[in-house]
């Protein structure tokens, strides 16, 4: 009985801390939405008004009309889906190869893979652009898609490898002795128990592609191909920024991500409930 009450107090403290932290973490969202509903006159006032005096819902209409919202949304969704699929398919294969298969040059190649991340990206922009330009891919989606279908990038591979490496070798060995092919082991045994890791990688990929700004900016010369993150820039002019409209568009842009994340994180933890007691 006494034990139980101590436990309850502990839980209460944990919840109290979480609620307090949540308030801090919720400020940006609250503030973003609040600004998105302000009139032009209220945006620039000091001290800051946390709640607008009248809620200007028409800001959302104006924000959506400021650039071809639906077209850019469609482009963004397309890129996000195709890149996430590519990253999951090829990235997991590569990471598994680095984690569990034995081949010559593996350690060296992995070291190189990690090392590539250390070069500050700004100096690679122009050389990379020149490669795509020589291939004739500039002004198409190819520079924004192909890398995802070729392993997905060093970060993804590194992350998945770290997950795969902690899988027990015994299950893989056992399957090999049973005569299963490597591909079958990978798809039938490794992938199903790696759902949390794959979901994590999906979250990062979806987020990255959804918010990616620099790639679409430099590779796409036709505004019909542009994405939401470029559209957002039209609210910032040289000397003035329409903060209210920018925040309205930002809110619309982040809502799908918040919803997707809410369901995906559930999946990560649910994976636990199902797996509980295994191996």
């Amino acid at each position: 009985m006494r034990n139980l009450s101590i436990r309850n107090i502990k839980i209460a403290i944990v919840y109290a801390v979480l609620v307090l932290l949540s308030i801090i973490f919720l400020i940006p969202l609250f503030w973003m939405i609040s600004t998105s509903l302000k009139s032009d006159e209220e945006v620039m006032t000091a001290p800051i008004k946390w709640v607008p005096s009248t809620l200007r819902w028409d800001n959302y209409v104006k924000a959506v009309e400021a650039f071809p919202f639906l077209l850019y949304l469609r482009n963004t969704v397309f890129l996000t889906i195709i890149n996430t699929i590519g990253t999951l398919l090829t990235g997991s294969l590569v990471a598994y190869s680095f984690a569990k298969l034995k081949w010559k040059g593996k350690r060296l190649l992995f070291a190189i893979t990690i090392a590539t991340m250390f070069i500050p990206g700004h100096v690679l922009v122009i050389p990379t652009y020149i490669v795509y330009s020589k291939l004739g891919w500039v002004n198409t989606y190819l520079p924004l898609i192909i890398p995802s279908w070729l392993g997905g990038g060093a970060f993804t591979i590194f992350l998945l490898r770290q997950f795969f490496i902690s899988l027990p070798d015994e299950i893989i060995e056992a399957a090999r002795l049973d005569g299963a092919s490597e591909l079958a082991i990978f798809t039938k045994i490794v992938l199903p128990i790696s759902v949390p890791a794959l979901v994590t990688v999906s979250i990062f990929t979806v987020l990255f592609v959804w918010n990616d700004f620099f790639g679409p900016l430099i590779y796409l010369h036709k505004s019909e191909l542009w994405t939401l993150s470029i559209g957002l820039r039209s609210f910032q002019q040289r000397y003035t920024t329409h903060w209210n409209l920018l925040m309205a568009a930002s809110t619309l842009m982040s809502l799908p991500m918040i919803v997707i994340y809410f369901f995906l994180q559930d999946k990560i933890v649910k994976g636990f409930a199902l797996k509980g007691g295994s191996h």
Binding site: L217, K222, S223, R233, S234, Q236, Q237, R238
Partner: peptide
């Protein structure tokens, strides 16, 4: 093609 003032220089430079 119209590009935001803030991004114009990077895009043109590249």
């Amino acid at each position: 093609l119209a590009i935001s003032f803030w991004d114009y220089w990077d895009k043109l430079g590249v």
